[in-house]
């Protein structure tokens, strides 16, 4: 009898509603801040890294969207801009750098080699897509992509953060900020 009683649908009380609303509000505010201030860690290998430089420079100007290249350690980054072929030896270093970042953290995969292996998809020594080793939020195709596409990716990521559609939340690898 007890169990049945517990399973019965009941309307939430006023306290619960206030609690839920407050939680929602705090989450919205946090997501607003997170989406507007994405400090990238530039994990640039190969030619895509050359395109990453104009992303922060005059013409494209990443700083407009709050993407500030603080040039600092993974501890202060929110976003890892991962580009180029990731060899199997590099994969561990990449994952190491990724694990150093405090959550919430986002991943943007840059370039064909990074998304799927590209030219080297059949190689014995390259990872065919970094989504095999870490959850990727946004992919930037191209070989190499234009700097404007980086800006587009950041805008898409902003949208995803606002709608709570980040990979980390979806696949439940590490749960909600408990890693």
């Amino acid at each position: 009898m007890e169990e049945i009683k517990n399973n019965e649908f009941s309307y939430p009380g006023l306290g619960e509603i206030i609690f839920m609303k407050t939680e929602k509000f705090i989450e919205d505010v946090l997501n607003w801040g997170r989406s507007r201030s994405l400090w990238p860690l530039t994990f640039g290998t190969k030619c895509c890294a050359m395109e990453m430089i104009p992303f922060g420079a005059t013409k494209v100007d990443a700083d407009r969207t709050g993407t500030l290249f603080v040039g600092d350690s993974p501890r202060q980054a929110d976003l890892i801009l991962c580009s180029g072929t990731i060899s199997k030896k590099m994969a561990r270093r990449l994952l190491n750098a990724y694990e150093q970042m405090p959550s919430p953290k986002y991943v943007i995969a840059v370039g064909a080699c990074n998304i799927s292996g590209g030219l080297f998809h059949d190689s014995y020594n390259s990872i065919a897509g970094i989504d095999r080793i870490m959850p990727v939020d946004v992919y930037i195709p191209g070989c190499p992509p234009r700097p404007e596409m980086f800006l587009d990716a950041v805008l898409i990521l902003r949208k995803l953060i606002k709608e709570n559609k980040i990979k980390r939340y979806e696949n439940g690898v590490l749960g909600r900020d408990k890693s």
């Binding site: 407009r64 709050g66 405090p102």
Partner: peptide, 29 residues
């Protein structure tokens, strides 16, 4: 010859507020 922060708030004035909120919401390692 860039613009600096533009989109967050008028003239990007709220950019640093967003930074602070984000830093508050980040995990301590």
């Amino acid at each position: 010859s860039r613009y600096g922060p533009v989109y967050t708030g008028p003239f990007g004035l709220l950019q640093n507020v967003a930074d602070v909120i984000k830093l508050l919401g980040k995990r301590f390692i």
